[in-house]
Structure formats: structure tokens, C-alpha cells
Computed example of a mutant assay.
Amino acid sequence: MLRTEDGGYLWQTCAIPPGSEKLDFRGVQAFDENTAIVMSSGPGDQSRLYKTTDGCQTWKLVFINPDKDGFWDAIQLEPLRTGYLNGILIGDPVDSNFAIFITSDGGNNWRKWGRNGSGWKGPCGERNAKAANGEAIFAASNQSLLFSTSVYPEFLFVTGGKSRARLVSSNYSEWDGPPCSTSFMSDRLDFGGGGSSSGAFAQAITKWDGWLPEKVMVVGGDYTKPEEPSRTSLLIQKTGFHVPFSSYFENPVIAQTQPHGYRSSVAYDADQKLWITVGPNGTDISTDDGKNWRPLTPSPTDPADADKNWNAISLPFVVGPHGRIGRLRTIDQKAAVTKKP
């Protein structure tokens, strides 16, 4: 793990959490310059959370996956407000229900969300997040999950696997049954053909509009077929004021020109008013809300592979395997956008 205090010009090596040398870390959430939580992904107790309060000089183990058949995929936290829910952790299904945990104290303690746990009550009471047969979540970029407490605690997550991809909301879903069966799951979220290696991998929004996102961009595909460009992005947007999230699917934006391969991460750059998405075989941008995507290629001053081999975006940074880090430049619409530090 690395840490920067100057926008990415210099990087410091962090201490390794004790006993974690062989773990696969997939998610990191920072509260300030000294406080952060990192999540490892793996079967059973290989899924763990560690917290630092001294700028990653030392780490404390705060949570181990209690499900021996579980696998954690994403974590999202917001700044602590005393007494309020401020974090969500989600994993693959256990006993046919997605494993969801919540925290109200900055990640020091976690409890299960759902009918049998201590989740908050929605319009139809506490709920379990029922998974379809063969459905799963991908841990590629820590972007399968979105979370906000702007008005009410709300989280969204995207799925994939053999059952086909879905977008799921904590406030309105078929988990509740009648009269709260306002489902917005749809075969329009069709990424890569419904195999175990395909589905929706990441999502990003323009902004939260009350307790609902204004626009949601979903990207994915089939990670075993990184060059396959068919149905790798989809934009979902609100069509009215204070409508249930199910109506987002009334007019989805399916790209006429798709990103040119499987994509594992996406972000919205509000300053440049564009979407950017990355994957193993390249980088794409869209300036028309996902109607059309075009690939970016390196400029003469960039490394030849500056557009490739990326896994996740957290603006202004993009990261890839083996410690690869890039920093987003202002896009002039003709030059490449990433460079190695």
C-alpha cells in the first residue's frame, strides 16, 4: 500500500497490516490524511477490514468475515456523524442472500443488515437482500457499491453472473414483496451474455439528487473476453421528480458506440463534463452521457501503454496491477489522459 500527501508527486510506502502479507486488498476508504480503512477480498476469513489512524504507520484489525462461505466485494464509507449510519460493506450471497454489513462509528464495529440483523427499516420493514441463482458481485474496482446519507441512508449495487446483471436499490426492490415490490431489475442490464465471468462490474453517478442519484453509469462485460465490445455500458437517469427508482429504466441510454472492451471502472469528471472508463485493453471517454464512447490513445510524451492495464479509477488517479498508478490530466480531446508518476 502507498500514500501520497502532495497530489501524487511523491508516494510513501505504508506499513503492512500484521498477518496480511498474502491477502488481496481490493478496497480503500480514507476519512482524512491520517484515517483510512482497507478491505481485503477472499474466501471466508480472508475477507478482512483494517483501520489506521496514524497515516498508515500502524493498522488495527477491526472486522473478519463471519461467513466461512462468504466473499467481500466492496466497501463505502462517509464521514462520521454521531448516531448515523456511515458505512456499508457488501459481499457475495451466503445462504441465498447478499451479505451486507453496516457501521455507525466510522468502521470500528459492524453489524448485519437485514431481517435477521440490525439494519434500518425501510417502508416495509427490515429486509434481506435475496440473490438469484448464480448471481454474484465483482470485486474488481470497489465500485459495485454506491452509498449516500445525503437525506436517508441509501445504497445501490450492481451484480452479474449466470443469472444476468442487475442494479439493486436498498429502498425500492422486490426483496420486500407486495406492496413494496417496486422492482427495477431488468434484462436491459445485459452485460456479456449472462455467464459466471460477465455482468455489471462498476457504477458511478453525476451527483446525488436528494436520496436518489441524478444519473448512474454502469459498465462491465466479460473479464475473460476483454476485447469484446458488445454491451459494456449503460446510462440510467431519473425521468421525473420524486419518482421511485424503477422509473429510471423507462428511458435508459444504451450506447450507440460502446467502449471498446470489458470495463471494470468508471468515473464522472464534473469539471470536464465527461465520463471516463478503463479496463485491461484501454481507456474510453464519453462527452454525451454515454451515447457514444471513443478510445483514448497515448500522446507522444506518454508511455506507449499509458491507456491500458488499468483496473480502477478514483479521480484524479487510476490504478492497475503490480503497483501501477496514473494521474488524470486535463483532457484536450486529442491527447492521452494518463501518465506514470
Results as ranks from 00 to 15, higher is better:
Gly119Cys: 08
Asn97Ile: 11
Arg81Pro: 01
Gly87Tyr: 03
Trp113Asn: 06
Ile64Cys: 08
Leu61Asp: 14
Val94Thr: 08
Ser118Arg: 07
Asn65Thr: 10
Gln76His: 14
Asp92Lys: 11
Asn86Leu: 02
Ala99Ile: 03
Ala74Leu: 08
Arg115Val: 11
Arg111Ala: 08
Phe63Glu: 12
Leu89Glu: 00
Gly87Glu: 00
Ser104Met: 11
Gly70Gln: 13
Gly119Arg: 05
Gly70Ala: 14
Gly87Ile: 00
Ser104Pro: 03
Ile75Ser: 03
Lys68Gln: 15
Thr58Ala: 13
Phe98Val: 00
Arg111Gln: 11
Gly83Trp: 06
Ile90Trp: 04
Gln76Ile: 10
Lys60Glu: 13
Leu61Gly: 11
Asn109Ser: 12
Asn116Asp: 07
Thr58Gly: 12
Asp69Ala: 15
Trp113Thr: 02
Ile64Gln: 14
Phe98Tyr: 07
Phe98Glu: 00
Ser96His: 13
Ala74Thr: 08
Leu85Gln: 10
Trp72Ala: 04
Tyr84Cys: 06
Phe98Asp: 00
Ser118His: 13
Gly91Asp: 05
Asn108Gln: 10
Trp113Cys: 01
Asp73Trp: 04
Asn108Ala: 04
Asp69His: 15
Arg81Met: 09
Ser118Pro: 03
Tyr84Asn: 12
Asp95Glu: 10
Asn116Met: 03
Gly83Ser: 08
Asn97Thr: 11
Ile75Arg: 00
Ile64Asn: 12
Leu85Ala: 02
Phe98His: 01
Asp92Glu: 12
Leu61Lys: 14
Gly114Pro: 07
Asn86Ser: 11
Phe71Arg: 08
Phe63Ala: 13
Ile100Asn: 07
Gly106Phe: 09
Asp95Arg: 07
Leu77Trp: 06
Asp95Ile: 03
Phe98Leu: 01
Trp113Asp: 10
Gly117Arg: 06
Thr82Ala: 14
Tyr84Ile: 04
Gly107His: 07
Asp73Tyr: 03
Phe63Val: 10
Asp67Tyr: 15
Trp59Ala: 09
Asn108Trp: 05
Ser96Ile: 07
Arg111Phe: 11
Ser96Ala: 14
Phe101Met: 08
Asn97Val: 13
Gly114Met: 07
Asp73His: 05
Arg115His: 07
Thr58Trp: 09
Asn109His: 14
Asp73Asn: 08
Glu78Gly: 09
Gln76Cys: 09
Tyr84Pro: 00
Pro93Gly: 08
Leu80Arg: 02
Asp92Thr: 06
